[in-house]
Design a protein around this nucleic acid. Sequence first.
DNA 1: AAACCCGGTTCCGATATTTGGAACTTCCGA
DNA 2: TCGGAAGTTCCAAATATCGGAACCGGGTTT
Lengths: 267, 267
Amino acid sequence: MNVQRMGGDGTVGKALDVLDRVAAYGRPVRFSELLEGSPFPKATTYRLLQTLVSQGMLRLDPESGTYAPGMRLVRMAHAAWAQSSLAPIAQPHLDRLSQEVGETVHLAQLDGAQVLYVDKRNRAAKVPMYSDAGKVGPAYCTGVGKAMLAFLPEAELTRVLAQQSWHPFTGATITSPQAMREELAAIRDRGHAYDLEEHEPGIRCIAMPVLSARGRVQGAVSVTTDGPGPLDDHLPALRAAVTRIAGDLRDWRFPDKGEDQEWQASS
Amino acid sequence: MNVQRMGGDGTVGKALDVLDRVAAYGRPVRFSELLEGSPFPKATTYRLLQTLVSQGMLRLDPESGTYAPGMRLVRMAHAAWAQSSLAPIAQPHLDRLSQEVGETVHLAQLDGAQVLYVDKRNRAAKVPMYSDAGKVGPAYCTGVGKAMLAFLPEAELTRVLAQQSWHPFTGATITSPQAMREELAAIRDRGHAYDLEEHEPGIRCIAMPVLSARGRVQGAVSVTTDGPGPLDDHLPALRAAVTRIAGDLRDWRFPDKGEDQEWQASS
DNA sequence: AAACCCGGTTCCGATATTTGGAACTTCCGA
DNA sequence: TCGGAAGTTCCAAATATCGGAACCGGGTTT
């Protein structure tokens, strides 16, 4: 159950599929562009777009005849962000961590097989903003991604690993499930993950997962740098931040999802 | 056309209506709670919820049987935020403004009859307030709201004013369209708006609209304070920031919507 | 212990919606 | 003037949705 694919159920599924497609282009799209690559016939796609526009989920620029995601999404997302993510709880701790380490700090959650960044503190800008919230990235070659994978229940891990692209972004990128499982074992051992230029050249980071009381992965925090300094210098601060977040998490009785499966290091 | 009410068209409209309802509660909701107040019968609401969950738009906590907005929304909203809003363009200018005035800074857009905050810079990171992007507020008693209303085309203004609640948040709140029109005329004259404790006691702000080349309202920026200092001190910096944002807006040839109507001070 | 209530879930025929191939209409550029 | 591409509308057939009612599991009352 709970399959990943979309466009599945009924009209609503189709509409959301179209919505996703529009969002996927990083720019306003014309109807015809959208059409090629759409699994639905012309008239259907057209009608769905109409509906979405009338609902405010899409914005149609009448001048250029292009569609773009609408602001209603932002409004809705606020609610999601505020109550369905770690971000509100982690907020003050990220502030403090960012202060302490003086580097860019990320908070991410696992969304399907991808990493979803839900908050961020920029190194330079002393004041945060969530330009990055909502951004997604690969799980298999980012610090936060690997930190979370390492503590996933076996069944879930298998499923997620099967969905990775294993694209070799750099020479250091891990490109196979087997190699990844070894890496994850090491991460479990030492309690934190590194990303040593596996995603972007010159970018390294150290990351730790945030676990619920039951040991379920709730998210991950990372400290990123593009400089030469040793990452481990940030470990104490990072560990402290994650501990505090997990603590608050427990207190606030946050949605700790259903099944209380054991995650185990099998394989 | 382009009416405001929702739940209008077909299944998709209904689904989005339900989604909105869930988001409206600031917390996970039980099915039964949602049911009372839902315009749809039990079975229908149930099926819609199921669909939304399976689509990742909602998250169902199987333990407590509660629904909450899902992370897919955040992912989608990122796209909306990045391309359908002023925020990405205004980013650096907000940073600078925030630096210069040392107070809380907001960037907002008009979304229907409400003000939608799309970005923010906190004065001191000490306040455990979370990201305001996506938050909505009343248009008739906020600085950004009034600044934008003042430069709306007459037809649109009439429509928007008709949709305000005119709830008297404080003693200073403007509570009638007539009074508002006078206020708006004054705002047009001087080029900027004030909110003198009209929304929250002790909170004052000064705001200016961001206009496109054609004179259409694209958003507004405000500087907020809870202290005693004179607001006009911030005017130069605010004006400069707005000017720079508008400049970039022009360069980047940003979506300047269709009709190029005159806004006029009639009445 | 039986009866009862209350969320939550499922059924299923009637009904309204969606579907999508095809035709039509602008609007260009040649 | 012609040809083609993008966008829009039609409409009967096919299908998904609708929603009243029944069902289920569990807790509480009688």
